[in-house]
Nucleic acid binder design. Structure first.
Lengths: 208, 208
DNA sequence: TCACAATATGACAACTGAATCAGGTTTCTT
DNA sequence: AAGAAACCTGATTCAGTTGTCATATTGTGA
């Protein structure tokens, strides 16, 4: 595991051309991982899709794993930006949840590759996977705490809630955005909104 | 892809010894996949752990993938049995959810390997992965429908709810049972129970 | 225009790990 | 105890992969 040159990341591109090539490789890797999966995808599949030679890939990445890490980091930024933009102007936390869930479903639907890449990263480099969800969770917890202070949300253990909410979104995205779009996003959002507003139980709140 | 002998599953063991060996291989594969992951685990790792030769594995399985499939099927039965047993005697659906979530967390904690195997199966054979959750979901939907009829649960789109609930459990298991046991299961169950009984919102039900 | 630094090439050496199969061992039956 | 059937072995094969490197190309500043 202490090989000589393997872990040393190649230097960053120094010209615009290099930056462009690096980006092309990254995009090609995203597509290739997305369709073939991380393990089935070979370096040659990626470079062929990018239209570069095998060796070129190693000018910018130390190997397949580093590409995956880069992709996951990238995805973290993009998803968070997309969701953050989507909830601007929400009246309250509950409406923000609706907007956020819809935006997430739309994002997954439009970016199936990145979604798969993230899930597969769990088994390639668990640290980067955890980092993604922990970063996501931190932001989410801050929003819940704010909402609680404003009296929009009942007090509770927000860390647990946040993991529950992330899991919920994750599976809804998998089932209703990635696998089969046999339910409208409206329907999904409405159902979950009802859960957040009223719970599952039929009888009223225990404490008003 | 139409190779001659590859897809033909080897015959089932015909003696007790064969059955024992097959079981040993399966158990070794579970452990090996659990610690190394499906892809990092080699056939030789599995056979070494089982204390058999490489070739022996092919007496009972057509290859690595079939072992994974077998393991996922196995896990489906075991988890469902464990959860079904855990909710016997529940007063109502809400209490059943509490008991079920706790049993799930306990199961994950006690069987980290099988949990990881299931998640990785998503990228090795998506069909078997879907099958697992769809089977799970069907049973779950039936229970929700019953509970709705009994007036324990508000009417709603149970298919969507079930996927949300499965995702929620999945992430809570990952974070609080598999990764870090830094919160008691009591705390997790109580938080989710509150969500199911009262929702997230502070103000009361829209319709009493 | 020339020099030279960055970028790109692609054949290939080195390696990996799944699957095979000819032959040995154990267990059962009569 | 002999014979047969089931079971097990593990060195070897082989298809496929990664990462290397000597060489070629491109673009830029003096």
């Amino acid at each position: 595991m202490s090989s000589a040159a393997k872990d040393i990341a190649p230097s960053a591109p120094k010209t615009a051309r290099g930056a462009r090539t690096r980006a092309r490789i990254l995009k090609a890797a995203e597509d290739t991982f997305g369709t073939l999966g991380y393990h089935r995808a070979g370096i040659s599949d990626i470079t062929r899709a990018a239209g570069v030679a095998q060796g070129t890939l190693y000018c910018y990445f130390s190997g397949k794993e580093e590409i995956l890490r880069e992709l996951v980091r990238d995805m973290g930024h993009k998803v968070r930006a997309h969701l953050a933009a989507s909830v601007i102007g929400a009246r309250d936390r509950l409406q923000a949840e609706e907007l956020g869930l819809r935006a997430f479903l739309e994002y997954v639907s439009a970016n199936p590759s990145l979604y798969r890449v993230l899930q597969e990263a769990q088994f390639v480099d668990e640290a980067i996977f955890r980092e993604y969800y922990e970063a996501f969770g931190r932001g989410y917890m801050r929003m819940l705490a704010d909402a609680t202070r404003k009296g929009e949300v009942r007090p509770g253990n927000d860390e647990i809630r946040v993991w529950a909410l992330m899991g919920l979104s994750n599976f809804l995205g998998l089932r209703f955005a990635l696998w089969d779009r046999d339910r409208s996003f409206d329907e999904v959002v409405a159902t979950i909104s009802d859960l957040f507003r009223n719970g599952l139980a039929l009888d009223g709140k225990e404490k008003a």
